[in-house]
Amino acid sequence: MKVAQKVAIVTGGGGGIGGAIADRLAEQGAKVLVADLDPDAAAAVADGINARHPGSAVAEGGDVADADQIRRIIDRAETEFGPVDLYFANAGIAGAPGLDAGNADWDLAFDVNVRAHIRAAQQLVPKWIARGEGYFVSTASAAGLLTQIGSATYAVTKHAAVSFAEWLSVTYGDDGVRVSCLCPMGVETKLMRSGENSGDPLGVAATKAVVSAGEVLQPGQVADIVLDAVDRETFLILPHESVLTMYRQKGSDYDRWLRGMRRFQSSLLEHA
């Protein structure tokens, strides 16, 4: 899909990957609503965009896991710019490490990393089917393909995010609904660094696993890759090419892969 003259919503847009995607969308001629739990962060990104591309962005603070707030954000975008063409479900949380995660931790992780995607799709997909066109971009993670050392809540919910994106594409792809799923590894964001600042050995190991597995990219690099994939309507977006190699190795010999992951985890915990 060509994004010029399109209307997009980017959640988790107050910084990191989301902020960079919002910026790139505006550069390519789209109108963007920047949504974030932190309204000041969302406003800062929108203000920066408008300084370079006047009238291209608006900001909304809100919990994008809440169906009513998603509806409010969609309504604002439609009022300001017109019907929403693209929705970037980018907001995410890292979650608690290990089995110490309680019910509240699990509920929050599922709400932000999975149900937020479902609730947005429930509101947008029927409109897109009626129009014959729309684009849903899910930010998952390489953890959704490979798993995540340290955080069970993150690994499980990112797998679920990948599965939901797959299901959307299978179910509605012939109705004009395009879907992409972003699965990066290390990207220099607050989310990536949350584990090493957790004070928990598994959390520290989680960050070390990511930064030691390959190049840590900047958000702008990832945003460029995402917009190129949207232009080509590619489902699986892998900013780190090594993830595909790892994913193939996992599928070809699961037991060997599990043994290797346990060895990798042990080496990380020794130095945590």
Rank of each mutant, 00 (worst) to 15 (best):
A8I: 05
V10S: 02
V10W: 10
T11H: 00
A20M: 10
R24N: 10
L25K: 06
L33V: 03
V34W: 04
A35L: 02
A44F: 06
R52T: 14
H53T: 11
V58C: 11
V64M: 12
Q69N: 10
R71N: 02
I74Q: 06
E78N: 05
E80A: 12
G82Q: 09
G82W: 11
F88Q: 04
G92F: 00
P97F: 08
P97N: 11
L99A: 15
D100F: 14
G102D: 12
W106I: 03
A109L: 10
A109K: 04
D111I: 05
D111Q: 05
R115P: 02
I118P: 04
A120L: 03
L124T: 01
R131N: 09
Y135R: 06
A140S: 12
G144A: 12
L146N: 00
L146G: 02
I149L: 08
G150P: 05
A152C: 12
T157Y: 04
H159T: 06
A161I: 04
S163L: 06
F164I: 08
A165H: 02
W167I: 15
G173Y: 10
D174H: 11
D174V: 07
D175E: 15
G176H: 07
V179E: 01
E188G: 14
T189L: 07
N197S: 15
P201E: 11
G203F: 00
V204D: 07
T207K: 08
V210K: 06
G214M: 10
P219E: 09
P219Q: 07
D224H: 13
T234W: 09
E241G: 11
V243M: 07
M246N: 09
G251S: 14
D255H: 13
W257R: 12
L258D: 13
F264W: 15
S267W: 14
L269F: 04
E270K: 14
E270C: 12
H271W: 15
